[in-house]
């Protein structure tokens, strides 16, 4: 299975403190040398097989995460590196933090740590490669991609700043409309 020998990664930093990102880049240095496994840091979602996300996912960068995910061709796997990406970490509960990458896109592998050690990141990638191979095998058997890799993820409505309009916002806006509409309706009645 050639996909096990050549998983190309794309790394996206969701407003991380850069701790995990530095460790991620350390994986590419002569010390750890990810390329010996055929892994290339592509920087282009259309070339990538493995999506690595670091940092806390918040309402500002949800559309970016979804867009990168949607642009990657199947089969693909997603790795949440560091506790912020996994659960929201120490930022969990902040007004803008959704509390983990898996609230936004399907996640296949979690690499814990603050910051995650390069050894742990390499271990996570190598384990995710097995999942990637399973997905490839399923696709070859004719399973539809939506069942195993997750289909196209609706990127949602955004306001003029690119911020996602959440359900709560939409509800509030609807309520406002209702409040505005109610007296008129009453008058008509």
């Amino acid at each position: 299975m050639s996909i096990k020998k050549s998983p190309w990664i794309i790394h996206y930093d969701c407003s991380s403190c850069n701790g995990c990102d530095i460790e991620m880049l350390a994986c590419l240095t002569p010390m750890y040398d990810l390329e010996r496994f055929g892994i290339v840091n592509t920087g282009n979602p259309k070339h990538a097989d493995v999506f690595i996300v670091t940092g806390t996912v918040n309402t500002q960068n949800i559309p970016v995460v979804k867009q990168i995910y949607n642009q990657m061709p199947n089969p693909k796997v997603v790795i949440a590196v560091g506790i912020c990406a996994a659960t929201g970490g120490i930022f969990r509960g902040c007004y803008n933090v959704v509390g983990g990458l898996d609230h936004v896109i399907p996640v296949d592998m979690y690499v814990p740590g603050c910051a995650a050690r390069p050894e742990a990141i390499i271990d996570g990638i190598m384990k995710s490669i097995d999942i990637l191979a399973e997905k490839q095998a399923a696709l070859d058997e004719g399973v539809v991609p939506e069942e195993i890799c997750g289909g196209y993820i609706y990127e949602g409505e955004h306001d003029e700043h690119g911020t996602l309009i959440t359900d709560e916002d939409a509800d509030a806006a609807e309520e406002e409309q209702d409040v505005g509409a109610t007296p008129d309706q009453e008058e008509q009645e």
Binding site: S2, I3, S6, G38, K46, P73, P145
Partner: peptide, 12 residues
């Protein structure tokens, strides 16, 4: 390996 993998990827 790279080319073999790319040939098996989804066409987008």
């Amino acid at each position: 390996y790279d080319v073999a993998k790319l040939l098996g990827k989804e066409k987008i």
